[in-house]
């Protein structure tokens, strides 16, 4: 059972990272950015391309991952900002549905844009960037053995631990940024009352751009980690994960930062426990049954009623 929970938390940390971007954007402009999952996918493709294309990156060892993370953060963040400025901002005062449909269109654009460039087949993650290879030993027979840490009667591999720790650090940093800094305060102010925020001297457009940069960059990070861990990426991988992250955001209470984190981990756990009980083929069914349950029974999510810290 411990192992089931550990696996759930691990998968949940991916959901949480992506759900954060969903939730931040919803909090600030009340838009369900359905292109967000595809930013995650785009981040993974950027990482893969860097591993292939940057000369000498293989000699950096695990430092190569730091380099591709950085490139991916910059490029996915910028992509998010551009998407907002070109596709969503002109529709700021349009009916919600128009923007929502635009977001779906943007999602297709990213998916099939990537397919056009890198092709429809799943891409193997280059061997110079596989996390497990850096964190394993070679045993007597020459086979690679993953290093792992026992936790109660289960275990987490070093790679899982690194990803989990990285996700936790990122989320803590984001919570501090939103909660304590001048810019974070401005973001919360816009989420509450856009006009009042601009009367305080907040540059609303610049702040919304900043939210898109941060949210997209976090998805980009998740994309690279996904590639480095699972070793294979496809142009449609953002579709399902995006929907799962959306589910996580709803479970936690969309628009709520802590809700996104909690929802991500909760969904990971629910899936993990559910598949253990019912079998792996029920995994996605399980997730979306919870989405429907929450939407009908408690649409505000777990933390939805605590309106404090909204955004």
């Amino acid at each position: 059972m411990t192992q089931v929970i550990l696996n759930g938390l691990f998968v949940g940390s991916f959901y949480a990272l992506i759900a954060l971007g969903y939730s931040m954007v919803y909090g600030i402009i009340k838009l369900l950015n359905f292109a967000h999952g595809d930013i995650f996918m785009f981040g993974a493709y950027i990482g893969m391309t860097c591993l292939v294309a940057i000369p000498g990156i293989g000699s950096l060892g695990i430092g190569a991952l730091a380099v591709i993370l950085l490139v991916s953060i910059v490029l996915t963040g910028t992509t998010g900002v551009l998407i907002e400025a070109l596709a969503y901002r002109p529709l700021r005062t349009a009916p919600r549905l128009s923007v929502l449909i635009t977001a779906v269109g943007m999602s297709f654009f990213l998916e099939y844009g990537v397919r056009q460039i890198w092709g429809p087949d799943p891409q193997p993650w280059p061997s110079n960037g596989r996390l497990s290879d850096f964190l394993s030993t070679t045993d007597a027979t020459g086979a690679k053995q993953q290093l792992s840490v026992p936790i109660f009667d289960g275990a987490l591999t070093y790679s899982q631990l690194v990803i989990l720790a990285f996700a936790v650090v990122l989320m803590a940093a984001l919570a501090l940024y939103i909660g304590k800094t001048r810019e974070g305060r401005a973001m919360r102010a816009i989420a509450l009352d856009q006009r009042a925020a601009s009367l305080m001297g907040v540059n609303v457009n610049a702040t919304i751009s900043r939210v898109f940069f941060i949210g997209s960059a976090m998805a980009g990070v998740a994309g690279v980690m996904h590639g480095a861990y699972y070793s294979s990426i496809t142009f449609l991988m953002g579709f399902l994960l995006g929907l799962k992250a959306f589910t996580a955001a709803v479970i936690g209470g969309i628009g709520n930062l802590y809700g996104a984190m909690l929802g991500g981990l909760t969904l990971g756990l629910l899936e993990s426990i559910g598949t253990t009980l019912l079998g792996g083929e029920w995994k996605d069914v399980f997730a979306f049954v919870f989405l429907i349950l929450f939407l009908t029974v408690k649409p505000t999510g777990i933390l939805g009623e605590r309106v404090v810290e909204r955004m």
Partner: peptide, 14 residues
């Protein structure tokens, strides 16, 4: 148009 879920001090900081 007070920022209702923020404290008095946070409102002033804004």
């Amino acid at each position: 148009r007070i920022f209702s879920t923020m404290t008095v001090e946070e409102n002033l900081k804004l």
